[in-house]
Amino acid sequence: MGSRSLLLRIERTPTLPFKQPKLVTVPPGDVTISSHIFNDNAKQKLEAAIAEIARREERLSAFAKTNLLTLPFRQAGYWMWRGFIGIRRAFTREGFHNLHVRGNNRVWKLDKDPAWALDDGKALDKLVKIKIG
């Protein structure tokens, strides 16, 4: 049996929609994150948020069925608000961890939402260096 060293595969999604994502493969010792990803009460917060979204969607669908004339204006307002939130998050770094890869001069942003992380981020916290501050 050949020994294989552990490598992290990081897919970097570009900001512009027409560019292709880049895949970077690095050893875990070369990656530093600005804070811990694992959060004990993340699942409870996620479940509460999902329940709140379901209630809101139910109320909005009932409202949309009775008020069809204002539907385009409500949809336009929704997408304008989502765009504003996205721009605000991009410039204020709200909701992101800073990810540094040795040999790369850029600081990458890692979304704080733990829904995608293996074992709620425990595995990544154990593999990479955490530099708080």
Rank of each mutant, 00 (worst) to 15 (best):
F84T: 01
R55W: 04
I10N: 00
R9W: 02
I85M: 12
L60A: 12
T32D: 02
N39I: 08
P17R: 02
R89E: 11
I33K: 00
V24N: 02
T66W: 02
S5E: 13
L8R: 05
N41K: 07
F63N: 07
F73E: 12
W81H: 14
F18H: 12
A51H: 05
K43P: 02
A123P: 00
K122G: 02
M80Y: 09
P114L: 03
T25I: 08
F91W: 15
R59S: 10
A42I: 11
K43E: 14
L99F: 06
K22F: 02
N67S: 10
T13W: 10
A123G: 02
T70G: 13
F73G: 13
F63S: 10
G2R: 12
N39F: 07
E47S: 06
L7D: 05
H97T: 01
F18M: 03
K43M: 13
L7V: 06
P27G: 10
F91T: 13
K131P: 01
F73W: 14
F18G: 01
E58H: 08
I130C: 00
S35V: 03
F84L: 12
F73L: 14
A62K: 15
L68C: 06
T15S: 12
A64Q: 09
N67C: 08
R89K: 15
S35F: 08
D113N: 11
R93T: 08
L71Y: 12
R59Q: 13
G29M: 03
D119T: 07
L118E: 09
R55F: 05
A48K: 11
Q44H: 06
V101H: 01
I10K: 03
G133S: 03
R88S: 08
R106F: 14
R55A: 04
